[in-house]
Simulated scan of single mutants.
Amino acid sequence: MSRFTIPVCHVDDIDHESSKGFEIGDLNFFAVKRDGIITLFQNNCPHLGVNLEFQQDQFLDADNFYIMCSTHGALFQPEDGKCVYGPCQGQSLISVDFEVIEQQIHIAEAATAIA
């Protein structure tokens, strides 16, 4: 049995080159789909501990290239969450482990207690 037990959404619910936020239990997180690859991160800036988005599901910069903190403009690589610009440069977002099962993104129940 897989340890990834909580379905989050269908992979097609996240548009290409975009992001989508989720809240399950105590976990506030978001997904980014870029070049067909999905990554999930906790919605928490390592610099100030604030949520990243400036509007619902808007975690990316104007070019949809970097994840951007709306509070101070820090930029993070979507493939690994590493900050490449801003006051938290060198730090990283915390990734959320997931598995795709029958085109549904699933996270582990234990992940919902992380926030």
Rank of each mutant, 00 (worst) to 15 (best):
S2I: 06
R3H: 04
R3P: 06
F4W: 09
F4A: 08
I6R: 12
I6E: 04
I6Q: 03
P7R: 12
V8K: 05
V8W: 01
V8C: 09
C9L: 05
H10F: 10
H10A: 14
H10Q: 14
V11K: 08
V11H: 01
D12M: 05
D13A: 15
D13F: 13
H16F: 14
E17Q: 14
G21F: 08
G21S: 11
F22L: 07
F22S: 05
E23Y: 00
G25D: 07
G25I: 10
G25S: 07
L27T: 02
L27P: 09
L27C: 11
L27Y: 05
N28H: 15
N28Y: 10
F29T: 10
F29N: 11
F29K: 08
F30T: 08
K33I: 05
R34K: 15
R34L: 11
D35L: 07
G36H: 09
I37N: 14
I38C: 06
T39Y: 04
T39L: 03
F41R: 02
F41P: 02
F41M: 00
Q42G: 02
Q42A: 05
N43Q: 10
N43F: 06
N44E: 13
P46K: 11
H47K: 09
L48K: 15
L48R: 14
G49M: 03
V50P: 01
N51C: 05
L52S: 02
L52D: 00
E53S: 09
E53R: 07
F54N: 12
F54Q: 07
F54W: 15
Q56F: 10
Q56C: 10
Q58W: 00
F59V: 06
L60I: 02
D61F: 02
D61R: 10
D61W: 08
A62D: 12
F65D: 01
F65P: 00
I67W: 12
I67S: 07
C69F: 07
C69P: 12
S70K: 06
S70C: 12
S70P: 05
H72W: 03
H72K: 03
G73S: 15
G73L: 09
G73D: 12
G73I: 05
A74K: 11
L75D: 09
F76A: 03
F76K: 05
F76N: 09
P78C: 05
P78G: 02
E79F: 13
E79K: 13
G81T: 11
C83V: 10
C83H: 13
V84G: 01
V84W: 00
P87C: 08
C88N: 01
C88D: 03
G90F: 12
G90K: 10
Q91P: 04
Q91G: 00
S92L: 04
L93K: 06
I94T: 15
S95V: 00
S95Q: 13
V96F: 08
D97V: 00
D97L: 08
D97W: 01
F98C: 06
E99V: 00
E99H: 03
E99Y: 07
V100R: 01
V100K: 11
I101E: 04
E102D: 15
Q103Y: 07
Q104I: 09
Q104F: 12
H106S: 07
I107W: 02
I107E: 06
I107F: 02
A108Q: 11
E109D: 14
E109K: 14
E109W: 04
A110R: 14
A110K: 09
A111Y: 04
A111C: 15
A111D: 15
T112N: 06
A113W: 00
A113M: 01
I114H: 02
I114F: 03
I114R: 08
A115C: 14
